[in-house]
Amino acid sequence: MKNFFDSDLWWSFTRSPVTMISAVTAFVCIAGAVLAPLLAPHNPFDLASLQLMDAFKPPAWTGEGDATYPLGTDDQGRDVLSAIMYGARVSLLVGFCAVLFSTTLGVALGLLAGYLGGRVDAVLMRIADIQLTFPSILVALLVDGVVRAALPRDVHDQIAIFVVIFAIGISNWPQFARTVRGSTLVERNKEYVQAARVIGLSPLRIMRSHVLPNVLGPVLVIATLNLGFAILAEATLSFLGVGVPPTQPSLGTLIRIGNDFLFSGEWWITIFPGVALIVMVLSVNLLGDWLRDALNPKLR
């Protein structure tokens, strides 16, 4: 731990107020989302607790509002703040898992391609090339559609969240694979790796203990930046109505629903989830940006 505080990273962190603010914001968002069942004033998924007569209550400070609903209620009488906290949970879960999925896949394939080279490399990189040209949203639409077609609706609703994770994750792995492959190519030819090879270490071991640690920096940067994209991709899919089922609304779903009330004066139903989404993605992106600059002394 002491090492960490002595590191360049920490030094650069303390030098950048924007980064500190965004780190705090991101932390608040994540904590609020993860601890939603403990912190949220209501449970928006408990149908039995919903009171239709409480619907469309404005935020508490506007006068007509109700102190039990700090940010007002939506069309079903759900507390907007609680819905945002639970929604952020879904958004973050999808975002993290999707990034984790594409990182794992991308790193593994990138290592493989870079280390083995030859045919494996050519094929993998060709696939990555082709997929990179397809926008992730379209890949996600396709994957989601195929699963939707293949499974009955009830089953689909239960696993919809995994489908979205898979759809977004699968569309982002080439970035990781390319970066890792590039770094691996460089590392592979370095003397210590050559030496390890000569003394007969297994390729797997070499990759794990020698090559992998050296490529983690850029991977971390891409992963952070990708988290923002993944959350936005989920929101867009949910906005188009093919994301997570409305029984587990994410921030994107909340915005889509609230969108209907934009002109009617009930702005809080869509504005607050929208702001929450933007703040969350923005703070994650700012952190990613800083991380990239900090890890790359040449100020890339």
């Binding site: 923002g228 936005l232 929101a235 906005f239 915005i255 923005l282």
Partner: peptide, 11 residues
């Protein structure tokens, strides 16, 4: 540009 990247298109 960061705000631009963080804002969903539909919004």
């Amino acid at each position: 540009s960061l705000i631009g990247v963080s804002l969903p298109t539909f919004l």
